[in-house]
Design a protein around this nucleic acid. Structure first.
Lengths: 340, 340
DNA sequence: TACCTCCATGGTACCGTTTGCACTCATTAT
DNA sequence: ATAATGAGTGCAAACGGTACCATGGAGGTA
């Protein structure tokens, strides 16, 4: 039978309210009683009951985290694990806990949010993806709930809390680096267009082409799923209608598939870049250049932003995390194809 | 201002207790009042406050999940994501939530468990790994808390709830399959010996050798970290002191490293198997045979076992999940090395 | 000495549920 | 007619804290 605040109070010869004040480190408590209370807490092995405290405070110090479950292959992507880890790191520091839930589709997601928030389990939620016209975001806004999203919202960007990479810039840098190395015909193989990241990265790609005076060509662009299979298929399809010197992708998994296709087609001279810098990109042959999106930092900052805003409304509504282009063998200086 | 049970009671013209009984589907409530109450709940958009309910029930219907954070590369392993997903699936079905936390080392782990359980946040916890003489397990047993571990405990196996693969069997099958294909000199490259899985898999390896009358040789065994680098290093080291026809490993990441070493050493004839069947094993060249350990099922059954035992003590204390050996190119029929 | 302040603490009413017990009627048995 | 039965419901005390308001006494001022 664990001890309660009353047991402590009795032992220390004070009232429960005094004990409560000691716990909260209330300023006007004499050192003498504070010591007595702390000692009693120690000997009784007292721990405040978090539930009771939450009930009185109307705050659980728990955050909800929604993870997508729809795409089997998305799960193999270490992105989410890193995000979760970043979230956990900040949350722990701030004394918060994280409650996670996988949801299959938007409808279930909304149901879960409704449950979580309405039943008062969580003080706020973290959304790990954002869709076009995301109904979850709408829902949360309408209900005036606290939340943060990882990704860039298309509307109300300064009323919603969000954290993201500067994806357009990131891809711009990749393409710029390739052009500087002599590549001109650069293809883009991306994930589904409905994901904002795909669009932002495409934009960066286009911007870079424009900057270097290379005309944009629709046949250089393919958009598919975030899977190795999809990348493989996309690359094969691409080469049926066009020749290119380099291929940028929006995900390492896609790049892995593309690399496989390149090997099969004997197109060793085509440069290739991934995105998200998963550990295996480094171990591929040739090692694949990739963009480190600092997923853990994304999670960390998301948690931080949300928790900060829970305490008091701040001016800061978003946070852009810098990416880093990691160059490896796969995107080397251009050389003429060795026509055998 | 969300509505409470009292608001509903007032609107329906009954007492709060009656409303509570309607929610709990108490048998002796007349259909008439039940209807009235339900209607009131509907129009007021009432949701029970989970916190208050937990306080009264002394149960949160939340489970704690401890994830290891010590090993950077372990995180890249999709195992944990799959486990989390399995857990989430069963938990959702049973009306439970999952609170996760990453912990860096045993000490922090125990601190977290103490906090979680003592502060009454969770009804039970799930441990995703188990060490030799695991202090967390000791702690939980001593405090009489409910918990389940993924892995096989070495002691008190029928007092502790646990879920695992039959790792010894799984590795036995792998080795047997290699022997049947003509391999005789089979090396074992595993993770750290302190992990029980390593030992069980080693045992299966030894059992198979014995069964086929192949003498066990210590120089065929290397134990390292669960990383690609470690696998690479282990393979190089192995070939400095012995020649083998085949290598079994206890993890795909290790196998990836081994494969890289084999390619570098020109030992294309050496068969190789991984473990855990990560998606990339299939996409390696040659594709790597691996053991599907059904990680999601492990998570699912762990959650199920724990939740079932939370409701009422059951006889069943553990659950063994069948593995499946997925054969691919890397472990083909033995052929004589083509000495060029 | 009387009065005001202020500091440290106690008393108590919540927070929103659940649940054992008591109570009120009908209904049935005696 | 009276007692026993039991279904349907209300009352009030938990559950373990928090925080506002009240209070008592020490110290300072007139």
């Amino acid at each position: 039978m664990p001890s309660t605040i009353k047991d402590v109070a009795k032992m220390a010869g004070v009232s429960p309210s005094t004990v409560s004040r000691v716990i909260a480190d209330h300023p006007k408590i004499s050192q003498a009683t504070k010591d007595r209370v702390l000692e009693a807490m120690e000997t009784l092995q007292y721990r405040p009951n978090a539930i009771a405290r939450s009930l009185a405070n109307k705050s659980t110090k728990i955050l909800g985290l929604l993870l997508p479950n729809n795409d089997e292959d998305l799960l193999q992507n270490p992105f989410y694990v890193q995000v979760m880890r970043g979230i956990s790191r900040y949350a722990q520091k701030a004394g918060y806990y994280i409650l996670y839930s996988y949801t299959d589709h938007e409808e279930q997601e909304i149901k879960m949010l409704d449950e979580l928030l309405h039943s008062k389990w969580v003080d706020g939620v973290i959304l790990t993806t954002i869709r076009e016209n995301d109904r979850c975001v709408e829902f949360l806004r309408a209900k005036q709930h606290h939340f943060v999203v990882i990704g860039t919202p298309e509307e109300h960007g300064d009323e919603i809390l969000w954290v993201d990479n500067n994806n357009s810039n990131a891809m711009y840098e990749v393409v710029a680096s390739l052009v500087e190395k002599g590549h001109k015909r650069i293809a883009f193989i991306g994930g589904p267009h409905e994901f904002a990241v795909t669009r932002y990265r495409l934009r960066g790609y286009q911007k870079a082409l424009k900057h270097y005076g290379i005309p944009f060509r629709q046949e250089w662009v393919v958009e598919r799923d975030y899977t190795e299979k999809a990348g493989y298929g996309a690359a094969k399809e691409l080469f049926e209608r066009a020749e290119v010197d380099a291929i940028v992708t929006t995900d390492d998994l896609i790049a892995f598939g593309v690399q496989k296709a390149l090997l099969e087609l004997g197109k060793n001279e085509v440069a290739l870049t991934g995105f998200n810098n998963t550990i295996l990109a480094e171990y591929k042959t040739p090692a694949i250049s990739s963009v480190d999106i600092k997923a853990e930092a994304l999670g960390y900052e998301a948690a931080k932003l949300l928790i900060t805003n829970l305490k008091e409304k701040s001016e800061v509504t978003h946070c852009l995390i810098d990416t880093e282009f990691i160059e490896r063998e796969s995107s080397r200086v251009m050389k003429k194809p060795s026509r055998s």
